[in-house]
Design a binder for these strands. Structure first.
Lengths: 164, 164
DNA sequence: GGCCATTTAGTTGTGCACAACTGAATCGTG
DNA sequence: CACGATTCAGTTGTGCACAACTAAATGGCC
């Protein structure tokens, strides 16, 4: 097969350690900063993401929330129950389609939005990066996610190097 | 009302949704690709990271592994037990310091390394990015992690806005 | 030596992520 | 209409991440 350049598997194993780990570590570091920023609101970071979606769309079926966040019911069902127990979200079976359950913010959930307005600014400050760079990084990460998703759904050709 | 220069909290709330979420999604997408790539080896992604560290260093106390991966004993203790149960790792109390427990690959664990050599190449192919870009992205992520870590330990100034 | 703070693994409890499954509702096709 | 396939939420089980804690060993200090 074509070895584009002679990068040994040994080198790859070391490099790999750095790439994947960097992403892993960055995600956890972000999570940690959000944890402290959201503690006052009584939200975890994934719960905050769900609230962002609901604040924007008002009322959504679980399925739609999952599409926005790329999460399935196995993750969302218990999460939404906790948000309901906290009084921030209402759930009910849809009348038109009894299979579907819709979630929407309660008045308390809507009020929470006001207190959440300051959070993004604090996070942005914590990154120490100008907005432009953050935006560029986001674009790069989205490309990466798309590539990984398609590669994953394409059953991982394995030794097919991406020039085809 | 608001000019492009003064970014409103509303805008931030939307932008934030994209930035933090992009990182979150990218990390999960990576995790998913690793999951399939590592299934044959019987390793999860975090277990693979631990094995990478042990392959490189031979024998390490739990504490040192945690420093390499930024993980604490609450995460590593059960993970190492599972690696031990799988036969890839040996653990034993240090003779010099009875508090410390060291872990090292068993012969089976060392042999596993050969089968793991192909993994990074498959992951790199799945990203669809040239090595240079991956390297640049890694550097950017490491900067970000460092910034987030220091901001976190500095108790989050909160209202210290970068500028605008 | 005796005492106390620190270090180190480990445990417990909570929450997220995901695979695999269940069960009910719905849809499509004959 | 009937019936099989599909869709949807939920449950179960496994594993990771992390906070808060325990328990044992160590080291410093008087």
């Amino acid at each position: 097969m074509d070895t584009p350049r002679t990068v040994s598997d040994e080198d790859f194993l070391r490099l790999d350690h750095q790439i994947c780990f960097s992403l892993h570590a960055a995600a956890r570091a972000f999570n940690s900063v959000y944890r402290t920023a959201l503690k006052d609101l009584g939200l975890t970071y994934p719960q905050y993401l769900v609230m962002l979606v609901l604040w924007e769309h008002g009322e959504l079926p679980v399925k739609r929330i999952g599409e926005h966040l790329r999460l399935d019911s196995g993750t969302l069902s218990p999460l939404l129950k906790r948000l309901e127990a906290a009084g921030y979200v209402e759930r009910r079976r849809s009348a038109e389609d009894e299979r579907s359950v819709t979630a929407r913010p309660t008045p308390a959930g809507t009020a929470l939005r006001e207190r959440a307005l300051g959070v993004p600014r604090r996070i942005a400050a914590a990154t120490g990066l100008p907005l432009e760079e953050v935006r560029a990084l986001r674009a790069r990460l989205d490309e990466l996610t798309t590539a990984l998703d398609t590669a994953g759904s394409a059953a991982l050709p394995g030794d097919c190097v991406p020039d085809d």
